[in-house]
């Protein structure tokens, strides 16, 4: 193609992306850069002193509490991711392979219903369900199955995983559903035709072709859950902090913005590294694509 044509096309493209680009700059880049610069400054009492320092990072990276909380955040979001994706796959499979085509949009609509209420309210509802005088306990005591309300179902890691898995389920179902929908059904017939039963056809054809969707689901669930703030606060009872709670304490309660920023940047780096590993996996699975 002629060079001037390319230039004009490029200019047109740039004009088109300029508004969202500026928007992204203001909404995304500016706050991130602010946090990044704060993390290298010194904390004064109730103010930030403009002195460059690595101190915040040294403090964050050497603190055993930070390490423990960061590891817990990773473990919780890994558990949430595994649970969510494992539960989402059968739902997406059912939606793609069993539900009649004319019903699919209704099912998708139903799956998004949880989004109609705020995330905070949904999390709080789990507290109502799991609480000491909550739905589960009053039902079980009412039925005479237990004498004392169960205490192990709230304010622990399990309840946090349960709540987050529920909150993020649609995010996992949708990309897996899309990947399954894209599979040419004659490929599954070909698998059967070539001598494999349904289970082996699933293993050798459906699953490999659904992998891009699974990897996308993993990323979509893992990245936001690691920074979740509301669930540890409400469902964890504030006694099992994750990294976001620690940042909140530094930023607001202790008013140590440089240290909070260093924590935030550290958390971002961890998420970035883990995501890159996933992206690499993604590329590996997509190596031979349609």
């Amino acid at each position: 193609m002629a060079k001037p044509g390319m230039d004009r096309e490029a200019r047109q493209g740039l004009t088109l992306i300029a508004p969202p680009f500026l928007y992204a700059l203001a909404i995304l880049a500016a706050p991130v850069l602010t946090i990044l610069s704060y993390s290298f400054l010194t904390d004064g009492y109730l103010e930030v002193i403009g002195e460059f320092t690595f101190g915040n990072y040294i403090q964050v990276w050497s603190d055993p509490i930070v390490r423990a909380v960061l590891l817990r955040s990773l473990a919780v979001s890994a558990a949430v991711t595994v649970v969510t994706v494992l539960l989402a796959f059968p739902v997406a499979y059912y939606l793609s392979f069993v539900v009649k085509p004319e019903r699919k949009s209704m099912w998708l609509f139903l799956i998004t219903i949880p989004f109609w209420t705020s995330y905070l309210i949904r999390v709080f509802l789990w507290k109502v369900i799991l609480g000491y005088n909550g739905v589960i306990n009053s039902s079980l005591t009412g039925l005479g199955i237990i004498d004392q309300p169960l205490t192990f179902i709230l304010y622990n890691v399990n309840s946090m995983v349960l709540t987050l898995a529920h909150a993020y389920a649609p995010f996992a179902i949708l990309p897996i559903f899309v990947a399954l929908e894209k599979i040419d059904r004659s490929l599954l017939e070909a698998g059967r035709d070539l001598g494999e039963n349904r289970l082996m056809t699933f293993w050798r054809v459906t699953l490999p072709l659904a992998m891009p969707g699974v990897v996308a689901a993993v990323l979509i669930v893992f990245i936001p859950t690691i920074g979740d703030y509301v669930t540890p606060e409400l469902i964890g009872g504030g006694k099992i902090p994750m990294i976001a709670n620690l940042i909140q304490v530094q930023m607001l309660a202790l008013d140590n913005r440089p240290l909070g920023s260093a924590l935030a940047v550290t958390a971002m780096l961890v998420v970035a590294v883990v995501s890159l590993i996933f992206l690499w996996l993604n590329r590996r699975f997509l190596r031979v694509k349609q």
């Binding site: 070909a190 035709d193 070539l194 031979v288 694509k289 349609q290």
Partner: peptide, 16 residues
């Protein structure tokens, strides 16, 4: 999968 037949599909159904 147990029949002594094999098929060439209209879309060829080559595993991508």
């Amino acid at each position: 999968n147990s029949r002594p037949t094999n098929m060439v599909f209209q879309s060829y159904a080559i595993f991508p």
